[in-house]
Amino acid sequence: MVFQSANIMSKPLLDRFPFPFDSDSYRYSNNSRKLDPPNVLDITPEYFEEIKLKRKLLENRKEQTFQSFPHSIEAQWEILEMIMNEMIANHPNYFSLKKERDYWIFQNHLLGEEQTFTFGDLSSLPCEPLDFIGRHVQEDLIYLGQRDGKLYMDAGQLCFPADWSIAFDLGMEFLEIHTPVPQPFTGTGLVEKVRDFLLRMEAGEPWTRYNWTLTVEHILDTAPETFGEWGTKKENVTAFNAGQLVNLRVEDQRLFRLPLSNGILFSIHTHLITLEELTNNAQWKYQFYNILDDIPNELAEYKGFISYKDKVLKYLEQRIADSSSIK
């Protein structure tokens, strides 16, 4: 693959990192906000390395990273069209699209690639439409079909999961997918409420929320299928190396009602930042310490960092102590 030396202008990571907390305590809630501007895509300087990794995973671990039902194809075309329209409207320097009726020419100037295809004709693309467009964006793309008043996981390209599996979840209904969320923290019927909220979502009014966890080392593809490779790294964390080893992992999740298929597009853009870099922001340092100190064990266990939570807390205490002694 030849990458063009196109320049993606951006601020340093610390200045653009989506810090997900606005208070000193964290619990599960329907923390959705209206998404404004209503875009699916964020293109960051990590674009090249992340697209390269995505395509490698799609090549080597296809079943793990892309799943779909035949009845999702119409929605997949709808998603492809929606994202291509956004690409050329918001990023005309990076992408272009020429349409002659159903004959389309798509160009990715960042990667120096061109694809001609017939819209609606599966045989004209090298892979399914959701898989194709997912190879040009950093976001993971999940399609929830709304069938007879229920939401089902009908298709998805998922390369950078926070320990969940599209191969396992395909075909599940929304409540089934969320069964693992610990009950004491979802309150009575929170998952049902979120589902009802999603069922009432309308086109033109997308929503967004952050989810977060901790990840040891800069590893985006923390899939359950490869837990043996990344999960064991948790044992290496100490209070001394936590700053370099442990990353705050934030998922910028966005939800869009699709007016043709009447389903929902769920996009996930995953951001990683080391605790060392994160704590250069003094306010975030204190806030994150308070969040972690307050978090119930069941939640820390569900999020997968209970085994080294105390080490991270010690590291943060040390960082706070260092900065106080300088003053």
Binding site: E78, E81, M82, N85, I88, A89, A203, G204, P259, L260, S261, N262
Partner: peptide, 11 residues
């Protein structure tokens, strides 16, 4: 028209 959204039956 660049942002035109298609519409499903019954919309």
């Amino acid at each position: 028209t660049s942002r035109l959204l298609r519409c499903g039956a019954g919309s």
